[in-house]
Design a protein around this nucleic acid. Structure first.
Lengths: 194, 194
DNA sequence: GCCATCTTGAACCGATCAGTACATGATAAT
DNA sequence: ATTATCATGTACTGATCGGTTCAAGATGGC
């Protein structure tokens, strides 16, 4: 265990994540990753293996960070699915308005370019979206008189709305408009389960 | 007017459009465009000037083709905004399930990568989305008792839902799921204006 | 001190990128 | 038939792509 790494691996992943998030996988060059992390190609390659593997690390980091926030938002409203959904989507709006990170969403970005990603990375993107969906589905519970099929559809609808926020934020939709989308989505959930 | 073009310019734009649509601007190489159109670089450059200008031609073609279909769908339900919205989004679902064209949506794809596009192309993408929004807004009319602000928000919501279909279709959402998203969106419109 | 092990920067690899130069060939006006 | 004009295929440009090689240095065990 000699010759220790001269940098913090997590921080490097964090910075790489931000670049992928901003530019997408294809448009992010190794040079850009080196510049963002302050590392040389050797360090990057020696630590992560390839651009593709680093990308997956970035996806995982993204999924973990915002997955936790989604979880917390849903859990804060255990008895009101509409409120839970509003909080869930609110996490995304708050992330988008956060000035220290890009607009859009790494998952939406990657979903759009999924055909040009490696098989492993494409699978990871689908996994992350599935996880979102399962989380929402679980938060909806099993209200009486509502068929399972409807609950599954509502969960898909909420995940879709979440992705739509990413697209709209990219072209400059202002926060109030994003909030309106959230409110209308939550309203649709309420009337579907009510 | 000698030395006439040996190819149909519209068909070339059509084919280029499909490639951009499938892969995005960044991931589409000139070689790919040459292969798809069957043209040499000289013909492409002589006719369109640059990859960027060709991309804008493709955007315009896309906007015109599906803009017309959106218009027709909305116009078919002049007295029922929810039905109009369902038909509007139905156009997108039908396009997505059409086997001869890619999944996703050229506008959503371009919106996501708007930061890496040229200024002119980015502006065109915003224009196309604005046009979508105006169309939906016009179709909602001026129902009594509904504030303008709500109508604007509903229009933004519908455009966002339209983009969400593109993202979800990319990761393989089956048609029934897309239809469910459409139905829930239309339902939200109905209850917002009702 | 000396060695084995690991990290790192820099130089390098072939491939591919968007874009261009130019010779060839086809056309239609004269 | 000659000529001016345009379209096209081929071959090229310098830049950049993702990835690799390797020597130089840093470290801890001995």
């Amino acid at each position: 265990m000699v010759g220790r790494k001269q940098f913090d691996v997590d921080e490097a992943v964090e910075r790489a994540m931000t670049v992928f998030w901003q530019q997408g996988y294809a448009e992010t060059s190794l040079d850009a990753l080196c510049a963002a992390t302050g590392l040389g190609r050797s360090s990057l390659y020696g630590t992560f293996g390839s651009k593709d593997e680093l990308f997956r690390r970035a996806l995982d980091r993204y999924g973990a960070r915002y997955g936790d926030r989604f979880e917390a938002a849903l859990a804060a409203h255990p008895d009101d699915p509409a409120d839970a959904v509003e909080a869930f989507l609110g996490v995304t709006v708050e992330r988008i308005t956060e000035p220290t990170v890009p607009t859009g969403c790494l998952i939406a970005q990657s979903a759009i370019e999924v055909d040009t990603l490696s098989g492993a990375s494409a699978a990871r993107v689908r996994e992350l979206l599935d996880r979102q969906r399962s989380r929402v589905r679980a938060a909806l519970g099993e209200p009486r008189g509502v068929p399972d099929r409807v609950l599954d559809d509502v969960a898909a609808f909420v995940v879709a709305a979440n992705q739509s926020l990413a697209v709209m934020s990219r072209v400059g939709s202002p926060e109030p408009e994003l909030r309106a989308i959230v409110a209308l989505t939550a309203g649709a959930v309420a009337s579907s389960l009510g």
